[in-house]
């Protein structure tokens, strides 16, 4: 049984006088214990809303509708009450965000914020909690942790703040860590440090990681399984190597062709995808990618393309998929 099994997750936002937004529209994926799972896609495809829904952090107000299920052991994270959810958050499932400043309290020293987590979930207090907090900051590579504990978030650099947030997230050795673009706001050499830190934590502690990113390079370097999202749905899902070696969905190949690569030869033109994410077809009417797709055929519209399951759990949602398989001449 997977650690987390998300089935048909959907989230809609309805506001009076405005069109209802289907932010997430039937997302399914699963995470095995200790696995690193990537959710990759461009802005607005529903990555953050998916993670907020799993954490029970979407605003509880009229107009926000959540459907589907997300089984974490015997608990459905989407349906459980707020009290249980509060216990699960931080202890079993933790999350880190793109902008660490927004998730740290600006007027409370880092040390107190870290020890609070330790007190709430592990019952540590006083000198014991402080010692453990120092140890945590040390583990995430914050120099001179004893001193840093007394400082406020704004006194740390972006990279150090993200380390502090990671320290709080892993304080209770959660089974699952969700990281929403944890390095997008950072410089590339600092990103490399943070990714290395996350790789090490996952390797040493067996924590499973859901890595949310728009960067295919980050995915290639650290995910075991990858889910490509487009317009609120997973359009392709595969193990890391088959996804990159044999991408089947035209959106995946489009993304891969769009990224300038360090190792490409001079003068190689990028294969841009035409149009923009604004040109979507609602999923019930057909393939949402159809308005931008070069492989579009008649069968693409009318109804949403079904999920095709290939070998080794390589699945894609497309009626006219790409194939790199070369036909062997007879």
């Amino acid at each position: 049984m997977p650690l987390l099994d998300v089935k048909d997750l959907s989230v809609t936002f309805a506001r009076r006088g405005q069109r209802t937004v289907r932010a997430v529209d039937g997302v399914s994926f699963s995470v095995e214990a200790g696995e690193v799972v990537g959710l990759v896609g461009e802005s607005g495809c529903g990555k953050s809303v998916t993670s907020l829904a799993l954490m029970g952090l979407l605003p509880k107000q009229r107009g926000v509708t959540i459907g589907g299920s997300a089984m974490f052991g015997d608990t459905d994270l989407l349906k459980t009450d707020e009290r249980t959810m509060r216990d699960i958050r931080g202890r079993d499932v933790a999350m880190i965000f793109q902008d660490p400043l927004s998730s740290l309290n600006p007027v409370i020293p880092i040390g107190i914020q870290v020890t609070e987590v330790l007190t709430r979930h592990r019952g540590l207090t006083g000198a014991k909690a402080t010692a453990e907090a120092t140890d945590l900051l040390n583990r995430v590579g914050i120099p001179d942790p004893t001193r840093r504990l007394k400082e406020y978030p704004h006194q740390l650099s972006g990279g150090m703040r993200q380390r502090a947030l990671i320290a709080m997230a892993v304080a209770c050795a959660p089974k699952l860590l969700i990281a929403d673009e944890p390095t997008t706001a950072l410089d590339v050499t600092i990103q490399a440090q943070i990714l290395e830190l996350l790789r090490g934590l996952v390797r040493d502690s067996g924590t499973a990681l859901v890595m949310i990113t728009h960067d295919l390079g980050v995915v290639a370097g650290m995910c075991d399984t990858v889910n490509v999202l487009y317009a609120g749905r997973v359009v392709e899902s595969a193990r890391r190597k088959p996804l990159f070696a044999d991408p089947r969905h035209p959106y995946t190949t489009g993304l891969l062709g769009s990224v300038p690569r360090l190792d490409a030869g001079k003068g190689e033109r990028l294969h841009a995808i035409r149009g923009s994410v604004r040109d979507v077809l609602p999923w019930p009417d057909g393939c949402a990618f159809a308005p931008r797709c070069d492989r579009r055929v008649d069968a693409c519209v009318g109804e949403p393309p079904a999920l095709v399951e290939g070998v080794h759990r390589h699945a894609y949602r497309c009626v006219n998929p790409e194939s790199r398989t070369v036909e062997v001449p007879s």
Partner: peptide, 15 residues
């Protein structure tokens, strides 16, 4: 060298 080695490349074999 450090900058170049830090840029993620969308290719698992290279990574």
């Amino acid at each position: 060298r450090a900058l170049m080695s830090a840029v993620p490349v969308p290719d698992p074999e290279i990574e």
